[in-house]
Design a protein around this nucleic acid. Sequence first.
DNA 1: GTGGTCTAGACCACC
DNA 2: GTGGTCTAGACCACA
Lengths: 123, 123, 123, 123
Amino acid sequence: MEFGDHKTIFLQIRDWLVDQILTGKLAPGDRIPSVRELAADIEVNRNTVMRSYALMEQEGIIDNRRGIGFFVSDQARQRLATDEKAQFIRDELPKLVHQAKVLRLTLADFEPLIQQLHENQNQ
Amino acid sequence: MEFGDHKTIFLQIRDWLVDQILTGKLAPGDRIPSVRELAADIEVNRNTVMRSYALMEQEGIIDNRRGIGFFVSDQARQRLATDEKAQFIRDELPKLVHQAKVLRLTLADFEPLIQQLHENQNQ
Amino acid sequence: MEFGDHKTIFLQIRDWLVDQILTGKLAPGDRIPSVRELAADIEVNRNTVMRSYALMEQEGIIDNRRGIGFFVSDQARQRLATDEKAQFIRDELPKLVHQAKVLRLTLADFEPLIQQLHENQNQ
Amino acid sequence: MEFGDHKTIFLQIRDWLVDQILTGKLAPGDRIPSVRELAADIEVNRNTVMRSYALMEQEGIIDNRRGIGFFVSDQARQRLATDEKAQFIRDELPKLVHQAKVLRLTLADFEPLIQQLHENQNQ
DNA sequence: GTGGTCTAGACCACC
DNA sequence: GTGGTCTAGACCACA
């Protein structure tokens, strides 16, 4: 776990798991690491991991089967794909446009992004 | 998810001033508002403004003349235009590409950004 | 804390900790006193200690783990030993030579320094 | 006048004049620049220059002949040579020794200083 | 008038 | 428990 990052740890964990789901490394129904497992792995307090899981459960991304563990919920992928996308376009994009303006960025500067967008289109 | 990305006040002040410089509203040599003035204007504590100014001075964006005030440094604009741009391409762009990938964003989603980039190009 | 010194408190704290590191009393990885602890110990405001720590973090001398504390960074000793030495030879030594010249100081006046230098050599 | 320096301006002026005296560029009896002259030259407030002169007068380095100007006092050079030297050995040297110790400086690092001291000796 | 430092006390989010 | 931010108010030295 990167302690240098300015994002708080429990959100880093959440984002990391969300990534796994969005990229298909974790599929609906899959079991995610137990709290104590993950806490030991990334050398972090169990409460911190617990907090991530609680947040994700409350977001409807994962389900908790008491005594067994946490599992990726059935609607997780779909829900994330739409919610996070909408949030991105609403919150991040305007900032991005503004930054592109004041920094006088060009299409060339965004080459890697453009390429990725084309790849997405062709799927 | 009310884990708001609300930036802290002293960073907002810094970013606001950086914007003024990058857009030419503040030119090198210009005096920026005194700590007391700005604090009164935006109804914020003097220490908070002071913290912004101290940060910017340390970044080499503004200079300080004892007992007189803070001034936009000569290299401010140039330094910002290059440093912030480089930092953006190094730090932000990869995240952006990754996000575009996992969220399966398309060129259409980025329409506003593309438009801005074209405008920049035509200047 | 010696209030007789002209230096401000937060810089005294920084210099005191730097000394501890350079002399090996604090090793990389060691936890330094929490902001509250130190503030209580030396009877100084928490914010003042915080300011020292923020400065040192920005200098790369110490790292911060959220909710846990500040730790001497891995490169701290090496970085200090080289940076501060280089800075001394670049900034302070010329002033010193100039002062020795205008004050017509002699080798005898610098006896204590010469002795220390010999001790350093024999280690 | 270097505004970037962290020493306060009126002390910079004082030190600059002291240097002129110690190096013989200004001799006892010489007239030093008038307050308004110097203020205009280095683009500084007259009060600031006046403060320097007042300090130096109080130190016995310069004399004020009302309506005429300030003049280097007869004992200026001698007085400075002894006072500043004593102060250096009492205040600065111990710090220097300590710094040499923690930074593990060697005789080689002080080569320029040693050379200057030898030159002083041979005069 | 300006910046600069410090205190005391509060509140927050996080581990 | 930890750091982090902010407020209110004070005092200082300097221009």
